[in-house]
Write a protein that binds this DNA or RNA. Structure first.
Lengths: 137, 137
DNA sequence: ACGCATCTGTTATACAATAACATCGATTGC
DNA sequence: GCAATCGATGTTATTGTATAACAGATGCGT
């Protein structure tokens, strides 16, 4: 029982993962904690430890600019692929885009600088389609 | 006196900006605070307020994945341009790269998703050239 | 002088993440 | 069986990051 099977999660990992998938949006570690108090989660560390594993398994991504976490929306996410997130500054909606071209371009840029690329964080801020049309008033 | 002139900074803004340019590397807000206690800075808020302005002026960038800040290395940085940072996980060295191609690609990706792009955070993690050759032992 | 905006200083507090330590349960090797 | 080990767990305490709320000070236009 290792990383590849979703069924292999421990109780706490399962709780945290379910909280994130149910949320359908990013949650901070403390928001997760609050939502899971009834399920026996009492301390931040229980959440952070579960998150560490979920990140390692590639089931969850961390949004650096929000200090929060989302369940990966790509069922068979390869974990190490470069992900691009769009973050709506109005409604908070987050979308996860997988784009090979960006990944390649970043790799080229790193190569130019003789930088050995291990992971990339790409977070775009702006307004989602819904919030744009809404503000066309 | 607004954003464009460097000479227009207030005392605290000047102190924080100088601390960052002297450091030649990223500093956390609290590291800045510690370095400026002798200069009369006593509370985190004094640093954060100065940083907010400096970010607004485009003189400073925030490294989301490090919770820290760097002085912009491009003298005439347009503030709103997309910046790419490489962060060495061994020595902590940070480089700031301006790349039009990446910016364009991200814009295209956002367009596809009907996302109105305002700002982009791109942070690459890995090993810098020096640390690669050093670890070839 | 007055109003207004901005920067300032201070205290207290919220939010994010980790340290240190004890325990429990399953597995492995003998 | 039994010790040894390893990973997950639970708990308390602490460090680090960022903001709230309030008060005072400064500069500027009218």
């Amino acid at each position: 029982m290792r990383s590849s099977e979703h069924g292999a999660l421990t109780k706490n990992q399962e709780l945290v993962y379910d909280a994130l998938t149910d949320a359908k949006g990013p949650l901070s570690a403390y928001a997760i904690l609050d939502g899971l108090r009834e399920h026996g989660i009492r301390a931040p560390l229980q959440v952070y430890r579960a998150l560490d594993k979920l990140l390692e398994f590639g089931l969850v991504h961390r949004l650096e600019s929000l200090n929060s976490f989302v369940a990966c929306s790509h069922p068979e996410c390869d974990s190490r692929e470069t992900m691009v997130f769009t973050i709506c500054e109005k409604c908070g909606k987050v979308s996860e885009l997988a784009d090979k071209a960006i990944a390649g371009q970043l790799q080229s840029l790193a190569d130019l600088d003789h930088f050995a690329l291990k992971a990339a964080t790409v977070e775009l801020r702006g307004f989602c389609q819904a919030c744009q049309t809404a503000s066309t008033q």
